[in-house]
Nucleic acid binder design. Structure first.
Lengths: 343, 343
DNA sequence: AGTGTTATGATAGACGGGTTCTTTTGTCTA
DNA sequence: TAGACAAAAGAACCCGTCTATCATAACACT
């Protein structure tokens, strides 16, 4: 015989069999009570429920999952929980998951080391998940060394499209077009760009949008500046531009923190915003941190993105599971850091 | 007969039995290969591994958990993922969990509705968790209607102590004492307080610290102001104080965002910071958002807190599981929003 | 008395991985 | 050639939940 069944309730979670023994009924009846099935005498039901209560019975997640083949949880793998993009993604997904009575199994990969789709997939595969979401905003996904797990929905949050995997992201390219069109309408043409670190994919697409918008109007883009997403880096860049570029009339910073830093730098350099220079950012993330937030920016509906991501990772039964590349458009929020170009 | 065994590999994950069939060996041999056990012929091993590769075998989480009785995941229940306190807690726990090769099963309760320990516990009980962490910063925990699940570690993040459950929190009372002592040393006595919403437990303890510090020096505390943690609410409060209190020499805002708003308001009112009024905050959360962050504040080591929380939720084998109430001390960060009181 | 209906028990199979026990096979030695 | 021994592989079973049968009762209605 292998391992003998232990009746030692102290070292083992309480099972249905334990409850059945305590209530003097069969395991079958306990199951009927636990699942609210009919054909149970009211008196028996109460006796069983009392036994459950007394023993502290809770159904085994493992047993149930093994039988049902589902986990009611969706896996989420990100490199850094605190990054604004990841955080708001988690928020959106959490919201969608709650609506589906689903939990999130969160794995944070190393913040510092590179991380690959292959490695993320391997780790998520060993977890109780019905679908997998991998956030790849920090670098280009290594599609070539990656194969999606068969039989489990996979969604990658990235701007790059993949023929066999659904990808979802905020439209980091389109947001630039929105902002640039806004600035064009106000008469601006000399629009400098303060970007994030060049390895960031979000950065690459936002910058491409800025550049394409200018080139479409046959304006030669001036050298883009590189920051690190922080307000301080935006300040440095703003200082540099204020001192070296007298023709610039607007600044597009690739996120709100840098835009906020740039505004401070411009003002410290004696320039007025928006009268002398218009400034725009992206994310709409300042509200809590800055009083009277005046920054014109683009807001992404991250709840919508979360829902999209979730529903593609855990497709409804019967849904077609064809892979798609979804880009959630942003919404232009016009405040008072932008103004018509003075004549 | 119950449910017939399906040999239809297309609709079912690949099991050891499938691999065994494909490799022409028994399921046990597959197990030996999968777990690197000895006594397997090298040729057989290769044949089995080839079959695994070909079929895309991955071990079932449910099957393994059922056998081992462990899930390698810790449950985390918060009301709102995006709240600074919760976010940094998630970050700290994620970090500790990664070190233990453990995942986080995250459940976000409704952001708006009240949520109770009883409900949170009930939901977490149905999930694959080896331990439970419940964040209760928003309200006082309902200890009276709550019983910890037997046989599973439970940690509540709250300032309130409980006789039978381990509680952990940043020391929201002690941080006030640190800041007040700093202000006292600079000669300040008329120190106004801008707090968060009064239902917040963090707020209640931070305010109590402010009040006790004053009373210990026999200074009558002036009426505390109530904000909502946002920079805008700090701005409003700062405006009000600038106009109505000419004796005030310092402001203690219960978080950095409100402190930042208050500073803007003071400056808009023609007061200088720190020459005329010193301002302090709590959290050290501004760095990314504000260029040249000058705010004197208190920083909590949230990674340490995360580790403490994690290790009490998932106690090591053999560890004593006596319940404790842990308060992580903050660290005073002196920048340039505070100065010696002019004569 | 015959026909349902309801409540419950007994038994068992399925899910997938892991452990223990047992059997087979092969090799070496006396 | 027989016995000893080890390596290799198979057989059985357990973990806990759920469901599918089937078999009994007890009870009510016609």
């Amino acid at each position: 015989m292998a391992r003998r069944p232990s009746n030692d309730t102290s070292s083992r979670p309480v099972s249905m069999a334990d409850v059945a023994r305590a209530a003097g009924v069969s395991q079958q009846t306990v199951s009927r009570v636990a699942n609210g099935l009919p054909n149970v005498n009211e008196q028996t039901r109460q006796r069983v429920q009392a036994a459950m209560q007394k023993l502290g019975f809770r159904p085994s997640y493992a047993g149930r999952s093994l039988r049902d083949g589902r986990y009611h949880s969706v896996g989420l793998c990100v490199n850094d929980v605190t990054k604004f993009g990841n955080l708001s993604m988690i928020d959106g997904i959490a919201s969608a998951a709650r609506e589906h009575n689903c939990a999130i199994t969160l794995v944070e990969m190393s913040k510092t080391e590179e991380f690959s789709l292959a490695e993320a997939t391997r780790r998520m595969a060993a977890l109780p998940v019905d679908g997998i979401i991998i956030g790849m905003s920090r670098m280009a996904p290594d599609f070539e060394t990656f194969d999606p797990l068969p039989g489990i929905g996979t969604v990658i949050v990235t701007m790059y499209a993949h023929p066999r995997v659904t990808t979802v992201d905020s439209d980091h390219y389109g947001c630039s077009l929105l902002l640039m069109d806004h600035l064009f309408e106000l008469g601006h043409e000399q629009i400098r760009y303060i970007g994030g670190p060049s390895f960031s994919v979000d950065e690459q697409f936002r910058r491409a949008g800025w550049q394409d918008a200018l080139e479409r109007k046959h304006i030669e883009p001036a050298e883009p500046l590189e920051g690190d997403w922080s307000a301080n880096s935006g300040y440095e860049a703003g200082r540099y531009l204020a001192e070296h570029d007298r023709t610039m009339t607007a600044i597009y910073a690739a996120n709100d923190q840098m835009a906020n830093g740039a505004i401070a730098a411009l003002r410290d350099s004696g320039l007025r915003v928006p009268e002398d220079v218009s400034v725009v950012g992206v994310d709409d993330s300042l509200d809590d941190f800055v009083a009277h937030n005046e920054l014109t920016t683009v807001r992404f509906d991250l709840h919508q993105r979360g829902r999209e991501v979730f529903e593609h990772a855990v497709p409804k039964a019967g849904a077609t599971d064809k892979t798609v590349a979804i880009r959630i458009p942003g919404q232009l929020i016009i405040r008072h850091s932008t103004a018509i170009l003075r004549a």
